[in-house]
Structures are given as C-alpha cells and as structure tokens.
C-alpha cells in the first residue's frame, strides 16, 4: 500500500516538474535556430503577392533566411529595429530584429546585401518577419 502511495507521489512530482518546465519554456533561441529555407527577398514578396493563401501555407510560422538589399533601417524610441529589404516595389520584406537576442550590429546601410533569419508572420503590405537575427 505504502509503495503504491510513494509511486503515486513520484508520478505527481514528475508531472509537476514537467508542467513547471513547460510553463517556463523559453522562446526559441533565434541565433541557433535552423532556417527551414533560404529565399531571396523579391522572390518571397512576389510569392505572397501572387497567391497569399498558398504563401501563407508555405511560410507562416517557418523560420526562414531572407537575402536581399537593405532599403532602409528604422529605429523606434523603444529600441525596436526594423530592416526593410528592397523588392523593387513600394513595399518589401520587413524584418523586425529579435528583442530577445544580442545583435552584433543594428546598423544596416541602404544598398548593403544582407541575410536575415526570422519567423514569417505573413503579408501586411510588406511581408513581415519577426524575431530576426543576421546570419553570416
């Protein structure tokens, strides 16, 4: 009888520990996250503008590395940095740098070619990527 009780107690403790771990599960580390695919900014933008539903199915929630030319970099008062990649259109691929990562740099000159890795969140004029980090 006692043995069963101990056993149940052990199970309960284990359950509690797993629950606690899940509850505090950290956000994915974007520096080490593996990109599901690498794509050119213009190609990505065109795919979204040709067939948004198909592009959503393909890219939403995916960690993708996007290569392109910097159009502009903006820095908000709260420290948010966004890098816009040129696609030859009025809009482009808008990459919001990850607030949880350390960045080697947050200055990107217009015209410079960069590759940024982030999570694709969809089309909102621009194709938006969140939690971006620069990849070498």
């Amino acid at each position: 009888m006692k043995r069963i009780l101990y056993f149940l107690l052990a199970i309960a403790c284990l359950g509690g520990a797993i629950g606690y771990y899940l509850w505090n599960k950290p956000h994915e580390n974007m520096q080490t996250a593996k990109a599901d695919m690498t794509i050119d900014a213009t190609a990505l933008f065109n795919e979204f503008n040709t067939d948004e539903a198909a592009a959503n199915a393909k890219y939403l929630d995916k960690t993708i590395a996007v290569a392109g030319k910097v159009k502009e970099t903006t820095k908000a008062d709260d420290g948010t940095v966004k890098v816009s990649l040129d696609t030859g259109s009025d809009f482009g691929v808008l990459c919001e740098l990850d607030p949880l990562s350390q960045h080697a740099r947050t200055d990107f000159a217009a015209g410079e070619t960069v590759t940024l890795k982030g999570i694709c969140t969809g089309l909102n004029f621009d194709v938006q990527l969140t939690r971006c980090v620069e990849t070498k």
């Binding site: 919001e96 999570i119 969140t121 969809g122 909102n124």
Partner: peptide
C-alpha cells in the same frame, strides 16, 4: 509593433491590419 494603418484625411476613412503571429 508592426501593425499597418491607412487614413484618408479627406474622408476620415481608415483601415488597420495586424498579423496575429507577430504578437510577442
């Protein structure tokens, strides 16, 4: 932090859009 908004000053019409997956 990446919601879009368009406002037409002549008519007061506006449109907002936000991507759900972009909420942190």
């Amino acid at each position: 932090k990446s919601a879009t908004a368009v406002l037409d000053a002549a008519t007061g019409k506006m449109e907002w859009k936000v991507l759900i997956k972009g909420f942190l």
